[in-house]
């Protein structure tokens, strides 16, 4: 569906079901340079099981208008505005990679609005490889190739997509190249590199939080994810073996199972709000 925030059109997938203001809201926030399509194997499930889902395209990404936001803090504020714009007072947040920085910062800034937080491949900080950052800011497609290489574990490199016939690395690469690289990936990478408040923000979080980490994640290794999780009171950690950073696609079923258990327990679908 489409709606407006700050005068710009925003696109969000509702997971194949009509957006319903009487169902609890889950917002999915994608990683650097990517789009709502990374969440297709989570959003459709929740949308068909009692939730209203918004898998967002951040400004300037995917099908959304406007320009990419230049800081994680701006993206966090923007998520808060999304919740208001669609007529809700609260939401559950799910983030991947850069989306984890955004949702951690958003939860710290707007504690009354966010009810649960799920982090996939997250860390308290994501300092960028300087060459990768430079390639992305200079619009070099090699930046996407490198990201796809480093972001994928065995399933990405060998294959075995949960959806028959899809090939991980090329699909992810095409998503990241769907808009001008320097305006999406370049801006996002710089925002990640500049963000220093993750660990402080984590200390402020008091809501149920889940971190899903993967043993073969080179982008946000398990030890970095654990550092962040250790700072969040009562945070749960689930580690997926033999999987890379793109866990939400590489091991979609295992991720969905963990996420489903966490969200349905802490933010049940039967709860009618607004």
């Amino acid at each position: 569906m489409k709606f407006k925030v700050d005068g710009h059109e925003v696109y969000a997938s509702t997971g194949g079901r009509p957006f319903d203001k009487n169902k609890p809201l889950i917002i999915f926030v994608h990683g650097s340079g990517l789009t709502h399509m990374t969440w297709v194997l989570q959003t459709r499930y929740f949308a068909f099981h009692g939730y209203s889902c918004l898998a967002l395209d951040l400004p300037g990404h995917g099908l959304s208008g406007g320009e990419s936001l230049k800081s994680i803090e701006d993206m966090a504020d923007w998520i808060s505005k999304v919740i208001e714009s669609v007529g809700f007072k609260e939401a559950s947040l799910v983030g991947h990679s850069q989306g984890c920085l955004v949702t951690v910062e958003c939860t710290a800034r707007y504690p009354d609005k966010i009810k649960t937080l799920s982090l996939m491949g997250g860390a308290g900080a994501i300092p960028m490889n300087k060459e990768l950052l430079s390639l992305a800011e200079n619009n070099d497609p090699k930046a996407v190739d490198l990201m796809m290489d480093w972001a994928h574990g065995p399933a990405g490199h060998f294959g075995g997509h949960p959806v028959p016939g899809l090939y991980h690395i090329n699909t992810g690469g095409m998503l990241a190249k769907s808009r001008t690289i320097k305006n999406t990936l370049g801006v996002d990478f710089r925002a990640c590199d500049n963000y220093k408040n993750g660990f402080e923000a984590a200390k402020k979080i008091k809501i149920p939080t889940l971190s899903i980490l993967a043993t073969d994640d080179k982008m946000c290794p398990v030890k970095e994810g654990k550092k962040l999780a250790d700072l969040i009171e009562g945070s749960k950690v689930d580690i997926i073996d033999n999987c890379g950073h793109m866990m939400l696609l590489e091991e979609a079923d295992r991720v969905l199972k963990v996420l489903k258990n966490f969200i349905t327990k802490n933010y049940p679908a039967k709860k009618v709000i607004n």
Partner: peptide, 15 residues
């Protein structure tokens, strides 16, 4: 994704 975690900037995807 820090520098120390990466060895060079050449994709190592299979040929």
């Amino acid at each position: 994704m820090s520098d120390k975690d990466k060895k060079g900037t050449k994709p190592n995807t299979y040929k």
